[in-house]
Amino acid sequence: MIALEFKLKGKAQQYRVIDEMIRTAQFVRNKALRYWIDNQGVKLVDLYKQCALMAKEFEWAGKLNSMARQASAERAIFAIQRFFVNCQAKKPGKKGYPQFKKHTRSVEYKTSGWKLSTNKRGITFTDGFAAGTFKLIGSRDLHFYSPNEIKRVRVIRRADGYYAQLCINVERIEESIPTGKAIGIDVGLNHFYTDSSGETVPNPRSLRKSEKALKRLQKRVSRKKKGSSNRKKAINKLGRKHLKVSRQRKDFAIKTALCAVKSSDFLAYEDLQVRNMVKNHKLAKSISDAAWYQFAQWLQYLGKVYGKTVIAVAPQYTSQDCSACGNTVKKTLSTRTHICSCGAVLDRDHNAARNILAKGLRLAAITLNTVGHTEINAWGQNDLYSLVVTSTSKSTD
């Protein structure tokens, strides 16, 4: 499944109709959640039936396509399922009890309620709201996909306009040239990441660079009268700036992950619990700005697309243990150089990256039933790596 995003170009009246569609989808989702609260144990089929009853009870709710109402009910059931999964897993802290939505920004259609134009450069919404035809602005060509392959159309409102995401039921597979290289990746704040060969990628610090402009725009919002049109304009400018920062962060995460995946056949990275790390209020902003979790997600996704082995390893003691001899060398966060009694002198992050690679290779060896080869020296892991790659290629043939 891939998602292609296009910007919707239409008239102001059409955008107001989309806002009504989004509000209706929010209403259906909240009503479905209320029905579950009042009737514990209901299933998705029961919520589908409630969607049909809502269409009869509320005329304006009936304007929304029937499958779009079902998709809104699915959002409620997904939130309920996530809550129960967190409870069963005994997740620490709040378990995410489903909440009523107040500021929904999207509405989702399935296979009906919309239609692509003949040249596939426009989309028409055909349900009761009759939003009309919008031009699709984007660089992707939809002629490669048949309409039957498009399983969902999601309309999203953002600070800079309205977008349509088309979810297409195709599998993305990219060809890649084997490099015979294995790397371990240690993420950080000084450098975005340091790999096991000593190469570093600078931290872009997108939020920090835009912080001055964000503060200025936030002041403008605070000075405007509540409810005034000038305040709405100021809020929109602030939202556009935040949107730009988030796009910069996402773009950097994708491009960096793509370079790492293409340049190596085996990648090991830290499985960090970012949610717990941001509880440190002194580092929370910098950690969030680095977007480690987003980078890890793209590593996993691109690894599958390009057929590379990507493994997440536990981060415990990767900075404290010596990658040369295995001895533990205690360090504080301010200590940036690893100095061991065996004579190894390395940058702290470089040492951690070597340990991460060793852990990843060890885990891969165990997975491939090569328990006899789990003794690894992080300074020379080529023999074991060749065994891992060979076993992986045989298992996929």
Rank of each mutant, 00 (worst) to 15 (best):
Y317I: 13
K7G: 05
W36S: 10
L214A: 10
V389M: 14
D347Y: 02
C342V: 10
I77T: 03
K110I: 06
C342T: 10
N30T: 10
V221S: 01
A130W: 08
S323P: 00
F83L: 08
G41N: 04
N230H: 06
A55F: 05
V274R: 06
W379P: 02
K56A: 04
R29C: 13
K282G: 15
G138E: 11
F84H: 12
F144W: 09
F78W: 02
R140S: 12
H103F: 03
A164V: 06
Y109A: 06
E270M: 09
L243K: 13
T124A: 12
S395N: 11
I376D: 07
K181G: 08
A89S: 10
T309G: 02
T111E: 03
A12M: 10
T370A: 15
T335V: 14
M21G: 06
R240I: 13
R208V: 14
R220E: 00
R275W: 12
L47S: 04
R249C: 03
R23L: 04
F134I: 09
Q165K: 08
D265T: 09
G96S: 14
A358R: 07
V245R: 01
S146M: 10
K255F: 02
Q248I: 07
D19L: 07
K308R: 05
L333E: 08
T337D: 05
A213C: 09
L47P: 00
V313M: 07
E20L: 11
S206Y: 08
W36N: 08
C167T: 14
R362V: 02
A68S: 11
Q273L: 09
I185E: 04
R275L: 15
P315H: 01
C167L: 13
L53S: 15
T126Q: 05
S106V: 02
K181Q: 00
I254K: 11
D38F: 13
S176P: 00
K9D: 14
R69F: 08
N382E: 15
A234D: 04
G62W: 11
Y145K: 04
A296H: 01
I339A: 14
G180P: 14
Y385N: 04
K151C: 03
A61I: 14
D347G: 13
V261N: 04
K49L: 02
M67E: 11
I177C: 14
S263V: 00
V201R: 04
L116H: 07
K91Q: 07
N30C: 06
L368P: 02
T126V: 13
T337K: 14
L238N: 10
K394P: 06
A61D: 05
I77P: 02
V345I: 15
K90T: 04
D251G: 02
G307E: 12
L136F: 09
Q40F: 00
A71D: 00
A344W: 06
A52I: 04
H242E: 01
D195M: 07
S72Q: 07
N355G: 05
F78D: 13
V107I: 07
V389Q: 12
T24P: 08
